[in-house]
Amino acid sequence: MASKYLSRRAFVRLGLGAGVLGASAGLGLWWLRGTAPEVQGLGVLSAAQYRTLAALSQVHLPPCPSIAISGVDLDLARLFDTYLFDQPPADQSEAQLALQLVEYGPLLFDHRLVTFSNLSADQQLAHWTGWSRSSNATRREIYWSFARFFGLAFYDQERVWPAIGYPGPSLARLQK
């Protein structure tokens, strides 16, 4: 009669198997994501997270006829990193986790063997739009967190104002 307990050998085999599987999955994810170019002067984000966020800012605020300046032109990803640097560690970790989810979003939610940064611009827009309309509340929460930041940071920039017809802070206009 077989023992209902695992033998020591079986336990070790199982452990090794799980380890190999985990390492393979990790390597697979790393390979899928690819190497992000090095970025100087980041406070919190890794180069890969910066790349994800930069892609996200570009897809959220792309260059277009109405407003030519884009999220990447204003380096919103670095602005977010600067903001994050002064946030509590728990908030930093949460934001980093959110960026990981976005990066692996196509794999996790669309079951495609590709990561966000490696999608084409059109595919990125379709995927990111999917987050905003998702039935999954966490994806919508992440969407709105970044959308709010991008909107606030982008339209606060003087370079954007001429395109949106904002003449600048009213006190300076009053004093002219």
């Binding site: 897809v59 959220h60 605020l61 792309p62 277009c64 006829p65 109405s66 407003i67 827009l125 990111w128 739009t129 905003s132 959308a147 709010r148 930041f149 909107g151 606030l152 940071a153 982008f154 339209y155 606060d156 954007v160 104002w161 949106i164 904002y166 802070p169």
Partner: peptide, 17 residues
């Protein structure tokens, strides 16, 4: 001010802009 208005735009991409 424009930042606060922009933070309430729901559509990503060219539509929001």
């Amino acid at each position: 001010t424009p930042g606060v208005i922009g933070s309430l735009v729901s559509e990503p991409g060219a539509a929001g802009k």
